[in-house]
Design a protein around this nucleic acid. Structure first.
Length: 212
DNA sequence: TAGTACCC
DNA sequence: GGTA
């Protein structure tokens, strides 16, 4: 059991490991979760969510936006980080509360340059993939779950290998680093309406990355 | 193949 | 959960 000081309180956060990825269960108390949702609404107001197309041309079921120096974009030309929202506006700044979470869990590493905000509505999912659009895989990827429960699946560094699953809940924080940095991972499904954090239901997932 | 449908 |  780890104790991490956030918001002036010592929050007990049991950690579990899934496919080499550390998950800090219940890392964020409900008050912090509500604050993050408010901040993320402001991000989405400035940079509206959109559904990128995969390399095959099919739209992703997840809608996303971003904050920071870079956002993530995809179309038939491939995946890449981009400095502006598709509308041409700059990405909003990464909210301080989100930076604080990175600093608490990521270790002695550079600050994140990209804060992806993924929204999972009813039926949305994300297939197994690797995060390999970054220039340097030495830095971890940090993932924050808000809202509905999600079945997270993790494999190894090759497709077709064994996988392991865990239900992520609102307030859980996962860190993909070290040997697990390039592990395949995805969201098989969400339990729509399982959390009351988002009034309309659904799941928000925030991922932080060093891109360059 | 950052997807989907269908099978057990 | 696995397969195509």
């Amino acid at each position: 059991m780890d104790f991490i000081k956030l918001n002036g309180q010592n929050t007990p956060s049991p950690t579990v490991t899934v496919g080499g990825i550390s998950v800090f269960k219940e890392f964020l108390p409900p008050s912090d979760q509500l604050h993050l949702v408010k901040e993320l609404r402001a991000v989405a107001a400035q940079a509206p969510v959109f559904s990128p197309k995969t390399k095959s041309g099919k739209p992703m079921s997840v809608r996303l936006t971003a904050a920071g120096d870079f956002g993530w974009f995809s179309d038939q030309r491939g995946y890449r980080y981009v400095e502006q929202h598709p509308s041409g506006v700059n990405w909003p700044e990464i909210p301080d509360a989100i930076m604080a979470i990175w600093r608490a869990v990521a270790g002695a590493v550079p600050d994140p340059e990209c804060c992806l905000v993924n929204f999972y509505g009813e039926g949305a999912r994300m297939g197994l993939h690797q995060d390999r659009d970054e220039a340097n895989f030495d830095w971890p990827v940090v993932s924050i779950s808000l809202g509905d429960d999600a079945l997270f699946r993790v494999g190894g560094t090759e497709r077709g290998g064994k996988t392991e699953s865990i239900w992520l809940q609102s307030g859980d924080v996962a860190v993909m680093g070290g040997a697990a940095r390039l592990n395949y991972h995805g969201i098989d499904r969400i339990k729509f309406g399982s959390s009351s954090l988002l009034k309309e239901g659904g799941r928000l997932n925030v991922t932080l990355r060093v891109v360059r």
